[in-house]
Design a protein around this nucleic acid. Structure first.
Length: 822
RNA sequence: GCCCGGGUGGCGGAAUUGGUAGACGCAAGGGACUUAAAAUCCCUCGGCUGUAAGGCUGUACCGGUUCGAUUCCGGUCCCGGGCACCA
């Protein structure tokens, strides 16, 4: 054994052993309890960053801990390999996305292996592999057959100069990121997944996921956004009607005009010829506004009059029809009945265009007047100017008006969701081709099973201009119709990369299966994922899509679980100097440098010690030294303790000195704390702190002249090694072996907590007078309340505060605190 | 703007169910060892005040509930994540 801790030697040794012995390979085993542990797989961007180090260190702690406890742990790793950056790199560096991605994966795999992570590498997959995406095409077609995949018209960001579709990220202040041209909204036929079909189930199950953080569930509920309201028909003067969705049908008598989204299909048809020029200009202007700006409250409300009118079905009054920039085409029906007195956006709009205001809800106490009001009144109140509903509360009125409208045939009660169907079409190359063929006679035809997969061709040019590279590749596009044999064209859109990440956790259960997307026997053994770990930034979209896919695959008969992830741990961001690490900000910390200088164990230990997982971590290298010093100190301590340890026998409790009993107590208290911190809270920072305190306790302990205490020293040091194993596996395995154990730490098992050894002999009671801390007293563990009271009131620090005062109240929290009120 | 979080010493953080604010670590200062340096070890370390014992004060800000609030409630400010084509 070396006297000094030399991580590079130890880590190489154990990593080699794990690789050669395939130590973390697992198979289905009905005799052991399974534990499916998963961290969100990385996008192969080039190299791992501190966020990865943190994420995978957290996961590895859980994996190694569960394996020590005897679980059959599935812990896979793979690559979310399709996506835009590969294509951008191709445009910039003239390298092929496939090559770029593969090189990145190869490099990042080495980096992950250097961290000593306990993956079953035999299950590794990359979503750009034909053996992965081919099965996704099959799933797409099964969804298409069930009507869960469909096509409809929708808008994309379009750069007229590059003639290409831009992702939101590629639009910078309304301009194209490459050429700065003004971006416009272009209407395209696109593929969608009918996630709204599952809206109710996705919402209902948010109450059946107790292992998820409440804040994530709240975000998902709000995202789905179920609201109860009314669909009301507003007849048009020219005939026909416009449907409106509202949750405020109690204000229908106050609707004085109508606002349509500029994208509304009736926008142009309802525009009178004299106004056509102005209206068209307005529509063009709104379409070039960024989507987030559109829904902002501080957006300057703008609109244009179409020249047409509709009729308020409640009052029979004429309402002018406007187009308004704040009305969104994809929420509700894309049309809003405007009630300027009781909706702030309508109010601002009405003031600007001098439209009539009519108060229909009166708050209690104040008299609202349409002439003098300065903002909309949006709360509940008493209905006025509302015909037969006058005088009742608007809360009751909501229900009554809805019933009345429905009875009159003027509307119906409906449920509306904020959730929209999932647009999966991407006019990009580096993604999974959508397996559809367009025939002039037969329309959209699914690629037949025998012709699958549609292979993503490699001989493609990347210019960043002129739309999808696939669409320019005749050898890909031109084909024949599977139904009639006539010449036909392939779909050139690829799928959103969120599709791949929506089912990869299922494929990990059977990565080599060739009979279909999933081998149900294996999938049903491993699913659900017992612990899923990843960034909080995925709280809604990825996690909602994955839940949706699991339910779809359940209904297709592939899986028998309703939800994919039983427990979810959302990791905070790794921040540097108050900002998310990014190359452009120049605040990236390179994990390689850290691992080279200190070793993987120190990098892991420190990334976990710096903050609890769910919190954002403001990275600062300075503390790393402390983690390394801690390991070095423990190494040296064990080196020096070996003579005592090898000669130590069994612990003989009666022979122990006071000091020996105290160290045993500390050892077992530490076992209890570390176990709870890992298993229940995932608070690794406090678990590590507790082990540090144990080591500090051992350092202060001197068994040298008291041989009967040597077994206690042995127990405490071995416990420290076992407790540390999930965090610093190379370090623990090495020392465990040095101490003469042959079978490795995982077989040794997690240390067993001994209640008796941990029991306190005396307690510290805090004494407060009028809520202020005045003294601390030490009492025997079995001290009665009367004894504690007596000790407290006679305590020399407490007594002066009681003198001359009347005792009003005494509160005793057993074993903790005595609060005296005078 | 909307939805969701967060704010505690010089710094990262701890206080798990309303009960000792600052565990553990970093940095800093002082000391020991050394020819010297590194490494290591020991001591101090929220602020104000006091020779000391101690006292007062302090968890973004304002207010409330309570014997007692970092923790619960109301409001304000600031920071971060997401907002449907970044993943």
């Amino acid at each position: 054994m070396e006297e000094r801790y030399l991580p590079e030697v130890i880590e190489k040794k154990w990593q080699k052993k794990w690789a050669v012995e395939n130590s973390f390979k697992v198979t289905e085993d009905s005799s052991r309890q399974k534990y499916y542990l998963l961290e969100m797989f990385p996008y192969p961007s080039g190299r791992i960053h501190m966020g990865h180090v943190r994420n995978y260190s957290i996961g590895d702690v859980v994996g190694r801990f569960k394996r020590m406890q005897g679980f059959n742990v599935l812990h896979p790793m793979g690559w979310d390999a399709f996506g835009m950056p590969a294509e951008n790199a191709a445009i910039q560096n003239k390298s092929h996305p496939a090559k770029w991605t593969k090189e990145n994966i190869d490099y990042m795999r080495i980096q992950l292996r250097r961290m000593g992570l306990s993956y079953d590498w035999d299950r590794e997959l990359a979503t750009c592999d034909l053996d992965y995406y081919r099965w996704e095409q099959q799933i797409f077609l099964e969804m298409y057959a069930k009507g869960l995949a469909y096509k409809k018209s929708s808008f994309v960001n379009w750069c007229p100069s590059c003639e290409t579709v831009l992702a939101n990220e590629q639009v910078e202040e309304g301009g194209c990121w490459r050429c700065d041209s003004s971006v416009v909204q272009k209407e395209l036929e696109q593929w969608f997944f009918r996630i709204t079909e599952y809206a109710d189930e996705l919402l209902d199950y948010t109450d059946k996921l107790p292992g998820w953080p409440e804040r994530v569930l709240v975000m998902q509920r709000n995202w789905i956004g179920k609201s109860f309201g009314c669909e009301i028909d507003f007849p048009l003067e020219k005939g026909g009607s416009i449907k409106v969705f509202t949750t405020r049908q109690d204000t229908v008598f106050g609707a004085t005009f109508m606002s349509l989204a500029p994208e509304h299909p009736l926008a142009l048809p309802l525009t009178i010829p004299e106004r056509l020029h102005e209206v068209t200009a307005f529509i063009d202007r709104v379409k070039s506004t960024e989507k987030i700006r559109r829904s902002a409250d501080d957006l300057e409300k703008e609109g244009v009059f179409t020249g047409s009118y509709c009729i308020n079905p409640a009052t029979g009054e004429r309402m002018p029809l406007f187009l308004a920039n704040f009305v969104l085409p994809d929420y509700g029906t894309g049309a809003v009945m405007a009630v300027p007195t009781h909706d702030q956006r309508d109010y601002e709009f009405a003031r600007k265009y001098d439209l009539p205001l009519k108060v229909v809800i009166q708050p209690e106490g104040v008299l609202l007047d349409s002439g003098s009001m300065t903002e909309a009144y949006t709360e509940a109140g008493i209905m006025v100017n509302s015909g037969q509903f006058n005088g009742i509360s608007s809360i009751i009125g909501k229900e009554r008006v809805a019933d009345w409208l429905q009875g009159e045939g003027k509307g119906k009660k409906t449920v509306n969701f904020r959730l929209r169907d999932w647009g999966i079409s991407r006019q990009r190359y580096w993604g999974n081709p959508i397996p559809i063929i367009y025939c002039e006679s037969c329309g959209a035809v699914p690629v037949p099973a025998k012709d699958l997969p549609v292979i993503l061709p490699l001989d493609v040019e990347f210019t960043g201009e002129g739309g999808s590279p696939l669409a320019r590749l005749d050898s890909f596009v031109n084909t024949s119709c599977p139904l009639c044999g006539k010449t036909a064209r392939r779909e050139t859109d690829t799928m959103d990369t969120f599709v791949e990440s929506s089912w990869y956790f299922l494929r990990y259960c059977c990565p080599d299966y060739v009979g279909g997307p999933l081998d149900s026997d294996k999938v049903n053994y491993w699913m659900s994922v017992d612990q899923y770990i990843g960034g909080i930034e995925h709280a809604v979209m990825h996690l909602l899509y994955a839940r949706f896919f699991t339910k779809v695959l359940r209904d297709l008969g592939y899986v028998n679980v309703d939800e994919p992830f039983t427990n979810l741990l959302t990791q905070g961001m790794v921040i540097k100097d108050g900002a998310k690490m990014s190359k452009s900000k120049g605040n990236v910390v390179d994990p390689n440098a850290l691992i080279e200088k200190y070793g993987a164990d120190t990098a892991r230990l420190f990334s976990l010690f710096a903050a609890p997982p769910e919190k954002d971590l403001d990275w600062n290298d300075q503390g790393v030294d402390g983690s390394f010093r801690f390991l070095s100190r423990l190494w040296k301590l064990i080196y020096e303790s070996i003579p005592f340890i090898v000669s130590a026998g069994e612990i003989k409790i009666p022979a122990l000195t006071e000091e020996g009993r105290a160290l045993r107590r500390l050892t077992h208290k530490t076992i209890r704390k570390v176990t709870a911190d890992i298993d229940e809270r995932f608070h690794f920072n406090t678990a590590i702190a507790a082990i540090m305190e144990l080591v500090n306790g051992i350092l202060a302990f001197t068994p040298k002249n008291l041989p009967q205490n040597a077994p206690v020293l042995k127990e405490s040091l071995e416990t420290a090694l076992l407790l540390l194993y999930p965090f610093v596996p190379h370090f623990s395995e090495e020392l465990w072996e040095i101490l003469g154990h042959e079978n490795g730490v995982e077989l040794a098992g997690w240390p067993v907590f001994d209640q008796e050894a941990a029991a306190d002999e005396e307690l510290l009671i805090v004494v407060q007078v009028n809520g202020k801390l005045r003294s601390r007293i030490t009492v025997p563990v079995d001290a009665s309340e009367i004894y504690v009271r007596e000790r407290a009131v006679t305590d020399e620090k407490v007594a002066p505060y009681l003198e001359g005062n009347v005792l009003k109240k005494v509160i005793y929290v057993p074993g903790k605190l005595l609060s005296i009120v005078v």
